[in-house]
Amino acid sequence: MVEAMEIDPPKGTSETWTEKYRPKTLNDVAHQEEVVTMLKGALTGKDLPHLLFYGPPGTGKTSAALAFCHELYPKNVFKDRVLELNASDERGISVVRNKISFFSKRAINQSENRLLNVKIVILDEVDAMTRDAQSAMRRVIEDCSKTTRFILICNYVSRLIAPIVSRCAKFRFKSLPAEVQIDRLRTICNSENTPLSEEDLKIVMKTSEGDLRRAVCTLQSLAPVLKNGDEKAKNSFLHPTNDSEIVKEIVSLLPSAKVPQVFEIVKRTAKSCSGVTFLRKVFDEFLEDDLINDDNIAIMGKLVAKCEKRILDGCDLQNNLLDFLLTLRSTFIN
């Protein structure tokens, strides 16, 4: 098991915990041995290719990239050598042509250290870029490879065009084991003087669905309640009942429900349900009740994946929930 790192958090209370406790060195990046070994090799003078980090959210992709850059460059030149962008916010072709291309072509002061003569562009959530922007990005990567290295970060490598993928060394970030997440959360709780029991930490980890960043955000949201010692509020936060009650109602009614009843359920629940997590809870409940079996599990799995993607892409939650439930209903009736 990976040991929890010793934390020396920076002073100040306005900083989010995800930034406050972000790994500062490559040794702090847990459970990603392959990429850490490669990055440490680059620090000692080995060649550094363009990199593509992909895998589930909250597994350390951005943290590994930033930790590497902080170890590579002194503080006094870091801002001149590293450009960090989030492609989900700046996804158009103009960003590639202006910000990225300008930074990549800009001259830098030479150094005796060969690696310090290379600039680095960290582009997060690159799978959110338009195809035109990705094509422009590919040209920038080709034209500026002598002076700039690109670290591209995404959740879904399948959304990238093949010419970009082929120009990068790919590293898949693995989901963090439960014990690693628990150790990390416990360390943060101890540092912030917000104690949680082992069972409560497991609940936070489970509801975050393997996303450690999301789990840390949950801890920060829960911190005021823990410091006030409000046990009732803590239990209400950790054990919400709304979703569970609604899921049980849907499972009992849906197989025989009329279409107007489905519309009524959606209208009543869409405003309060937890989106993607809610869809998975419905799926799991049908699975436990054997309403999803070997005959229809493939259809159900594709349905959940399709609706999840739509919601994550910003489509209307109510319409997707309606499509999800009506399709489930038709499966049972047929």
Results as ranks from 00 to 15, higher is better:
T187K: 12
L185S: 07
V140R: 05
I188N: 03
L185T: 09
R139N: 08
R186M: 14
I153P: 00
R186D: 15
Y156L: 07
D127I: 00
R149S: 02
L176K: 01
A133S: 12
T130C: 09
M129R: 03
V126K: 00
R139D: 07
R184A: 05
S145L: 03
A169E: 12
V165I: 14
Q134L: 03
L152D: 00
M129F: 05
R131Q: 14
R159Q: 11
S158H: 15
V140D: 01
Q181E: 11
R131D: 09
S158R: 15
K170F: 03
R167F: 04
R138N: 12
T148P: 09
R167T: 04
P163D: 12
N155W: 01
I188Q: 03
I164W: 05
A169R: 12
L185A: 10
L185N: 07
I141W: 01
I151F: 04
Q181W: 02
F150Q: 00
F171C: 03
K174D: 13
A128Q: 08
R186I: 09
A162N: 14
V157F: 11
N155E: 07
R131N: 14
A162I: 09
A178H: 15
I141N: 08
F171E: 00
A169N: 08
V180F: 02
K174I: 13
R131Y: 09
C189D: 05
E179P: 10
R184K: 14
R186P: 06
R184C: 09
L160H: 08
F173G: 02
I164S: 09
R138M: 09
Y156T: 08
R159Y: 08
R184P: 02
C144W: 00
A133T: 08
E142P: 03
C154Q: 01
C144S: 14
L185Q: 10
S175D: 08
K174L: 14
A133I: 06
T187C: 15
S135V: 13
S158N: 15
A178S: 15
R131P: 02
S145P: 04
A136D: 11
V180D: 06
R149E: 05
V140A: 06
S145Y: 05
Q181M: 15
K146S: 13
E179D: 15
I161H: 13
I151H: 03
S135A: 10
D143E: 13
T130A: 13
K174Y: 13
F173I: 00
K170P: 07
A178M: 14
D127C: 03
C154A: 12
S175W: 04
Q181P: 04
T148N: 11
I182E: 12
R184H: 13
C189S: 12
F173M: 04
R159N: 10
L152A: 05
A133F: 01
T187I: 07
I161C: 11
V140K: 06
L176N: 02
R186V: 11
A162G: 11
L152E: 03
L160E: 11
T148G: 10
F173S: 01
C154L: 10
V180I: 14
D183V: 06
V180Q: 10
R167N: 01
I188P: 04
R138Y: 06
R139C: 04
S158F: 08
